[in-house]
Design a protein around this nucleic acid. Structure first.
Lengths: 234, 234
DNA sequence: AAATAATCATAATCGTAATTCGGATTATGG
DNA sequence: CCATAATCCGAATTACGATTATGATTATTT
């Protein structure tokens, strides 16, 4: 999944010999895999090492702590996401596509990445513990994704009302990502993250939100129609 | 928030005196409140009891374990959700409303419930630990919600294509609930669960999904338009 | 090949918070 | 008021897994 690239991560002892580089890589790889079916709490260092064919001693000579280990997993997933974004920026297809096609491509790309890192992502979402919110790394990635997509989508959405359209785009991604997050965390149905259909459905959902904004009355307060709710309720 | 109704829950020792009924209620109430700002792991029995003005001994004479305690919190939130559903079933407004109004009412009701139980819900979502998925209780509630709403929405969506429309409704709720789950768990922005605007936006999103299905070509395979994606991608 | 550094193995430690236990204390019924 | 059960107290126990310590291996260098 991830090439044995050089890891230089806080809490990860740099390897000076091939052997240790391999155990580091194996620990990361196997751990990410185990997280597909176990929570982080359930993944004990001992069990992990047994799977890998290493020992806790080896683990601790590579990683400062379980915490640092998990951070490394997160960082790797995030880096992979970052490189996906880079590739996207250079993708000629995006500048030529219409709005429907763009929605499809953007949603599909995101889903692919999520599927690739399902275990680590779920673990990062759950992670009760402490404060410095592990998920924040991915929040940044999501923001970058939206930031990248926004100008492209805007140019496919025609002139005028840029601010309102930008908000619609942001909200559209909030909806798409929210649905996906819930899918990997709870698999609530009807569609699972692994269903083919979820791609088309979500892409269409995004498209509808964007089209609705394009069709919205251009008066000041472009969301006038949506603000009809006044009545209160218990 | 929850009246001192009789609790009869597995793992909760039935109270035979007023005093203990009060400590049980206080422990549940204060704990639910503390979970708004702390994770379940961070909520130690000791800290909880200090807040309540009780002792761990009292806690364990009321609850079998921390686990049972948390289950009780979940059950209470779920019961409250259930009674919201009951109220909804008898609400005359729903039979008269049009689709837009229905979307608003349904979404608003759900959001209200979520806000009321934000802490417990977040904790249930995170909860690394063990298997029998704590969230499943809420999954059942969500299913019941969809089951209740479906016939009402169907009748507001006109004749024909009932199967496709039902799928659209299910997916619509998946999207709405997913967005809300992500909002309480990660608050990814732009809209937080506490923003007024999220109600209108999500209601509109649901409406758009349903309207799109109504407008879909009525041929067999009513989602023909959405299934245009054929090309593969790396 | 010896010396030195890096890595690994294994068995102890340690920390943390849940849980238990043996009395106090408080309520209830006669 | 007394007897009895229910509840509460809080220090000690326990469980569990991360972490550390120490001593082997294995690689690198000269």
């Amino acid at each position: 999944m991830q090439r044995p690239a050089e890891l230089d991560l806080p809490g990860v002892t740099p390897s000076r010999q091939k052997r240790s580089r391999e155990t580091t890589a194996a620990l990361l790889q196997v751990g990410a895999e185990m997280l597909r079916t176990h929570s982080l709490a359930e993944l004990s260092i001992d069990a992990l090492c047994r799977q890998v064919g290493a020992t806790v001693g080896a683990f601790y000579s590579r990683f400062e702590s379980k915490d640092a280990y998990f951070n490394a997993l997160i960082e790797l997933a995030a880096r992979d996401g970052g490189s996906r974004l880079s590739r996207m920026r250079e993708d000629r297809r995006l500048t030529e596509a219409d709005l429907a096609e763009l929605s499809r491509l953007l949603v599909r790309g995101t889903i692919g990445w999520i599927r690739n890192h399902e275990g680590v992502l779920r673990a990062a979402l759950q992670h009760d513990d402490t404060r410095p919110d592990r998920w924040s790394t991915f929040k940044g990635l999501a923001r970058a994704n939206v930031a990248d997509a926004t100008p492209i989508l805007l140019s496919a959405m025609g002139r005028g009302n840029k601010a309102a359209k930008t908000r619609a785009i942001s909200f559209g991604f909030q909806v798409v990502l929210g649905t996906l997050v819930n899918a990997i965390l709870n698999d609530p149905g009807p569609l699972s993250i692994h269903d083919r259909e979820i791609e088309a459905r979500l892409a269409n959902c995004l498209l509808l939100l964007l089209q609705a904004e394009m069709a919205a009355p251009a008066a000041r307060s472009s969301r006038g129609r949506k603000k009809q709710l006044r009545r209160s309720q218990g």
